[in-house]
Structures are given as structure tokens and as C-alpha cells.
Design a protein around this nucleic acid. Structure first.
Lengths: 187, 187
DNA sequence: TTGCCAGTAGATCGATCGGTCTATATGGTA
DNA sequence: TACCATATAGACCGATCGATCTACTGGCAA
């Protein structure tokens, strides 16, 4: 797939393969498919991650860092606090307009693993907490009167955008959400 | 489970059991679990629905009618067009606050069956089209200047509410969404 | 009474699941 | 050189998947 994937060790190759296949094929993707995509021996998966559950959790722990970094960069720089948050929805518009966008990875994983004890759920919870904290931080920088409340509103708009983008991607839900986000910021 | 389920025929019992188990256990629920819950012979499932895929699609065709009726009743009666749409979010607050609320059934099914040719996807598409039509109709009754645009905004708020309710149900996303819905109606 | 048919019960099929196992190869280090 | 950790390749395990099959039962209509 890329040069890094070919030279990296089996652990890294497995993480990359699982990151891709879990997203494109869903949580029901089989272990054999992951091994084939990663070009890794079956035993290596269980040595490094203990099993499929551990691999899934490890993937989410990694993508959480990546996705948080994406949100940070999507906020732009130098703009006003208000412009930063609005710019986020411009980047979301690009994201969900991509042909292979398939919705929020963390929601899909939560729905795929019905068992509440699955280690993936702890990772998705932590991810959402970090997203929320990021929004609160920006709203406080903006001097918003109710940063926690506004963060929940923005979070709902983001999640709604991702769902609409996954199910009706011919529209532009991020633009629709951006208008409402502007109301939140000024409220 | 209820009196109707015990006296009804195998087709009806299968639909009821699948409606419940597909929601509570997800699309990966096994055929044997469905048969046991419905107290139906294995052969009957394939006689009536041709297979698991057909049963899933039939369940969605039924729940679409039920859920559309729920939205119609949630709109209330006698109120103003504006009050009707706001009342919908009050009912959504009750819905997502329920302890066994697990999110939007149609989104979960879409994510569970990655194969684009699965007959369930046609049902979920049709369902969303009917929801959208309902919102447009109400917005036109309200005399909204941009009913299609506002319907997309309300739809996004509804989907966002369902996601937030499924993943962070200790909060009240429907109340948060209701405030933004009011903005949409007055915009 | 006879025949039909929808239903039940459950064995069985091939495929696939996640996971464990043995055997072998390789590369770095004592 | 000898050793050991880490990797690969792939057979193998029991369990479960969706689906097909035979055998039997009960009720209803001709």
C-alpha cells in the first residue's frame, strides 16, 4: 500500500491493515483477511495483541490520536476563535464529500460489538471525551458564556454531519451544520 | 413475550422476534437465535422470507411504517405547525432517555451489512426519504421560506440526537437539538 | 376417509469464525 | 559458533455461521 507498510514490522503492518479494513469492511472483518492484508503470520497477531479484540482496541487508540490531530489541524491557525470553529465545518465538508467516506469509525465499532465489555468501547468513550474537551477549550477561548452547553451542541452537529455524510453523501451536511454552528457560537 | 406473539403464525412471530433481536443484538445475530426467540421451525424462515437477508428486509419494511407513524403522532395535534415540530423533539427526548435505547435501527443495519447489494439498504434509503418528506410537508405547512433546506437541517439534528442518545445517554441531546430546531424554524 | 399442506423437530452440509499448535527460518548477540 | 528471540507458514481445533434436507404431525377441505 505504501512504502512504510512494507518496511515496518508485523505489529505496525497489522495496525495499518486493521485500520483500513475495520473501516471499509466493518467490525465483522475476519482475522484471516487482516493477516492477508498485513502480510503477517497468524501467530504474530496473538503475540502482539492477544487476539482480535486487542487489535481492535489498539487500532482505536492509535486512530484517536490521529483523528484528534486532524481536528486540531482542521481548526486552522491565526484565525479568530470563532473562525477556527467554523473552519472545522469546512474541513468536515471535504471529509464527508470523499467518495470512500463511510461515517464515524467509533460509532460503527460501538454498533458492531454489542458486548458492553468489549475493550473497544472504552476507547470510543475516551475518544468522545477528548473531542468534547477540544470543543470546550475552543469555546472558552472564544469567551462563550456557556462553553459546556455549546460544546454539546457542536458535538451533536458534528455527529449529525458524519451520519448524514455516510448515508446521503450526495448532499453537503457539513454546510448545513455550519450554519447552525454559527448560531451556537453567537448564542 | 406478549399475547399476540403466542397466538400469531410463524411469519408474524418471526417478524416480531427479528425486530427485537436485530435491534438489541445487532445485525450479526444468528439465525438460530431468531428461531429460538420466535419459537419457529428453521424451515419456516426460509419458506416465508427466503433467508436471513429477506427477513431483515421485511423487518425494516414493517418498522418503517411503525416509525413513520411514531413521527406522525410525535408531531402532536391541534398545535401550530411550529409547535408540532418542536413537540417532536420533546418526544425524542423521551425516546433516547429510555434505558434500552440503542440508536437508530436503520443506521445500525446499514453499518452492519457492508455489502452494498444487501436488500436492507434499499429499505433504509426509502425510510430516510419518507422522514425527509414528512419534514418538508410540515415546514411547508409552517410557511417556511426554504422547506427543503430546513428539512435537511432538522434531519441532521434528529440523526445527531439519535447518535448522541445512543453513545452518551446520560445527557439530553434532544433538548440541545430542540434549541437549534427552533432557530431553523424561525430562520 | 383421503389427500394435501403448512408447520415442527432436528440432523446435516460446507464454509468460516477466532484461536492454538508445530515446524521452520532469520537475524542479532553472547 | 552457539544461542535465543522473533518472525513466517500453515495445519488444526471446536464452535458457529446460513442454508438445505428428511421425517413427522396436525388440521382442513374435497
Amino acid at each position: 500500500m505504501n512504502a512504510k507498510a512494507e518496511t515496518a514490522g508485523p505489529r505496525e503492518r497489522l495496525l495499518l491493515a486493521a485500520e483500513n479494513l475495520l473501516y471499509s469492511r466493518g467490525g465483522s472483518v475476519g482475522v484471516s483477511a487482516l493477516l492477508e492484508e498485513a502480510n503477517v503470520a497468524r501467530r504474530s497477531l496473538y503475540e502482539h495483541f492477544g487476539g482480535k479484540d486487542g487489535l481492535v482496541a489498539a487500532v482505536l487508540r492509535r486512530t484517536a490520536d490521529e483523528d484528534l490531530a486532524w481536528y486540531e489541524s482542521a481548526l486552522g491557525d491565526g484565525d479568530s476563535p470563532r473562525g477556527r470553529l467554523l473552519a472545522l465545518f469546512d474541513r468536515l465538508d471535504e471529509l464527508v464529500s470523499n467518495a470512500d467516506f463511510r461515517g464515524c469509525r467509533y460509532l460503527a465499532i460501538d454498533l458492531a460489538f454489542a458486548d458492553q465489555d468489549h475493550p473497544a468501547h472504552a476507547e470510543t468513550d475516551a475518544y468522545r471525551g477528548r473531542i468534547r474537551a477540544l470543543l470546550v477549550r475552543e469555546l472558552e477561548a472564544l469567551g462563550h458564556a456557556r462553553p459546556e452547553h455549546a460544546a454539546e451542541q457542536l458535538h451533536l452537529l458534528i455527529e449529525g454531519t458524519l451520519v448524514m455524510g455516510a448515508t446521503q453523501n450526495h448532499q453537503h451536511p457539513a454546510r448545513v451544520a455550519r450554519e447552525l454552528a454559527a448560531v451556537v457560537l453567537d448564542g
